[in-house]
């Protein structure tokens, strides 16, 4: 038993119930909220556990909720769940302080891994200082083009826009991104963005 409290903020009651069933059988404690307001009302200043937030909700959406949490100084690891993942959405979520980003439908084990890893870290921390330092060191291995593309991704631009501005095909951008991940030793878009943000990779002048 983990005894980790999971705050599920999603407007879809069925989905909330399914998460509860799956997480509770895996030893987590689940509290459900139908919208962001309900969560903000109930949450204590230093909450335990972690929050699963759906991006697409009527009224206050996931990004707005993240902003409220940040503005109110509430520190809780946030995992963002979305029905339609694209790079700009992922980057926005990560920049807003999410520790992970999952696209529906995800494998339950992926969510459980994300929760465990989020819980073991402090909020909005990509990894330990040595991990970030290692990531920063590996950044030097990137070619100029790969570095440009990484900065474009961090700027939250769609691949097609990045491709156009660099005068290459979106497919090539995709290949570059895979290489970037390999060189930097991170898997998945959310890890890439999280580490890049932690290592202060900023969107270069080309992407402003």
């Amino acid at each position: 038993m983990h005894d980790i409290t999971i705050h599920v903020i999603d407007d879809d009651a069925t989905f909330r119930a399914s998460l509860r069933a799956m997480l509770e059988t895996n030893g987590f404690v689940v509290i459900e909220y139908g919208d962001g307001d309900a969560f903000l009302e109930a949450i204590t200043p230093s909450p335990q556990g972690c929050a699963l937030i759906d991006v697409r909700m009527p009224g206050m959406d996931g990004f707005a909720l993240q902003r409220h949490l940040h503005d109110q100084g509430i520190e809780i690891p946030v995992i963002v769940i979305t029905g339609a993942a694209d790079i700009p959405t992922a980057v926005r979520a990560m920049k807003a302080g999410a520790v992970d980003f999952l696209e529906k439908p995800f494998h339950p084990s992926a969510l459980i891994d994300a929760i465990k890893s989020a819980h073991s870290r402090s909020t909005n921390q990509a990894g330990s200082e040595p991990e970030i330092a290692a990531f920063r060191a590996r950044l030097a291995q990137l070619t100029e083009r790969e570095r440009e593309i990484l900065e474009g991704i961090v700027a939250g631009l769609p691949f097609k826009i990045i491709a156009h501005r660099l005068g290459i095909s979106p497919r090539t951008v995709e290949v570059h991104r895979a290489h970037i991940g390999e060189k930097l030793g991170v898997s998945g878009l959310s890890n890439l963005v999280r580490f890049a943000l932690a290592a202060s990779v900023v969107s270069g002048p080309k992407w402003r």
Binding site: F15, S18, T25, N26, G83, A84, P108
Partner: peptide, 19 residues
């Protein structure tokens, strides 16, 4: 998107059942 929603729920329920 709409279909993904019930699939995700189904997957969760399924894993709860498997547990």
């Amino acid at each position: 998107h709409e279909v993904n929603q019930p699939i995700s729920a189904a997957v969760n329920f399924l894993h709860a059942a498997k547990s």
